[in-house]
Design a binder for these strands. Structure first.
Lengths: 242, 242
DNA sequence: GTCTATACACAGATAGAC
DNA sequence: GTCTATCTGTGTATAGAC
């Protein structure tokens, strides 16, 4: 699947998801009309990401946010009780959306090498489609109070576990050779993160998500694939070397 | 060279360097006695890193810093004019130190594969020895005003250039195969950064810098080394696979 | 050189009119 | 539902005694 197709499928998905997620946080919101809530929360979240990614969440003032979102300070405070709650809502919404998409795509695959490809590709595509949030989440959740930080760490380890699992399964079925899979998984994660953390750099060099995905997959396969499977891919021209 | 040996050499080096660097920033400091300046700036910098890495530089108040450094607010302000200047001083001191050490070690090597090893190893060792600063620098310099941000980006691209250059030279002398070296270099950088950004994770798993270095080198060599050189290393047992 | 006490600006948050 | 006006706490930075 290429990136354009991927983006189309998730933007349809996003609408349903948004309403569903709202019901959970509804208790904290004073506004009655659902349409208004969805529309304005969206503006608020976008503005938050835009400003925070420039100068940090802590440095963003409510006046900044008010200006960027096009709502008065008073209006803002009818959507959340305090600045910290704004962050919690934003995080919980995006986090569960991300998790859902990722799992669905991986579970759809059956072959072990395909699972690896898809995990890498979908993670990159997701972080491309939601780059501001991925960046924000990485940079900001570290400085946050106890329970929120725990969730950030859990989320970091969760994706890693997925890769570790795939690599372990692959070794059993002789698709991958023996390596330190835990370490490999964490390095894959680091390479995935670089895509959204250094977006400016790759943009300047005209590297597309597809190219980056292909390159990562080739690195990982060169390192992990068993010799027999390397040959198979080569004859199929499938592992995207160069 | 192992990490313990490395650390010993740089801690000797650091003393001379500190005095040398102070002369540049001396004009902004009201204190006369050099010994006092060195001693207190050290306390201030350490405290800054400690607090900032917990809750962010922006969120660190001067009262926090005063408490942690063991100096009153009044005393602090005789070492710098404002909070932003504190950050500039810290950055300039550590940045030039890092650069010097890195270059010296790489230039000492002559073989192209050795240059690659050393570049990876020394970068990791440096970021291990100065982990709080590397972490801080990554997380904080993005949110800073114009000229400081430019320096951060320059610094990011500088290390990358080193790796790109080594890979290019290596291809010419047939040590490395043809790849997208610019992209490989930026991925190496990402893997190096993961070491100091996720220090907690590797510590919990009892992965040492040496192990991590060995693993990175094996990934890069598996991907880049020409088939003939791979064999050479294997018979020498030198590329640390597994 | 280092301290305490204080000025002053600006942040987050609310009240109440429309 | 959204606005303007305002309260109150806290942050940076300085003045001046010791």
């Amino acid at each position: 699947m290429n990136y354009t197709a991927f983006k189309k499928t998730i933007s349809n998905y996003a609408k349903d998801f948004c309403n569903e997620d709202l019901l959970e946080n509804r208790k904290n919101i004073r506004i009655k009309k659902e349409g208004t809530v969805v529309k304005n929360l969206d503006k608020i979240f976008d503005a938050t990401l835009k400003i925070s990614n420039k100068k940090g969440f802590q440095a963003m003032t409510m006046r900044d946010l008010s200006g960027e979102a096009g709502l008065s300070m008073g209006a803002l405070y009818s959507y959340f009780a305090c600045k910290e709650d704004l962050l919690k809502m934003l995080q919980s919404q995006r986090r569960s959306f991300t998790k859902k998409i990722l799992e669905e795509h991986i579970n759809r695959e059956t072959g072990i090498a395909d699972k690896l490809h898809t995990a890498i590709r979908v993670h990159l595509y997701l972080s491309e489609a939601m780059q501001p949030w991925f960046y924000f989440s990485y940079m900001e959740t570290k400085n946050i109070s106890g329970p929120e930080q725990a969730k950030a760490i859990e989320s970091e380890l969760y994706t890693e576990k997925i890769f570790e699992q795939i690599l372990n399964d692959g070794e059993k079925s002789k698709v991958f050779i023996h390596r330190n899979h835990k370490l490999t998984a964490s390095i894959i994660k680091a390479m995935l993160q670089d895509w959204y953390l250094k977006r400016w750099k790759y943009a300047k060099r005209n590297i597309s998500v597809e190219q980056y995905a292909k390159y990562l997959i080739s690195i990982v396969e060169t390192f992990c694939l068993s010799p027999e499977h390397k040959k198979m891919y080569k004859t199929r021209g499938g592992n995207g070397l160069h």
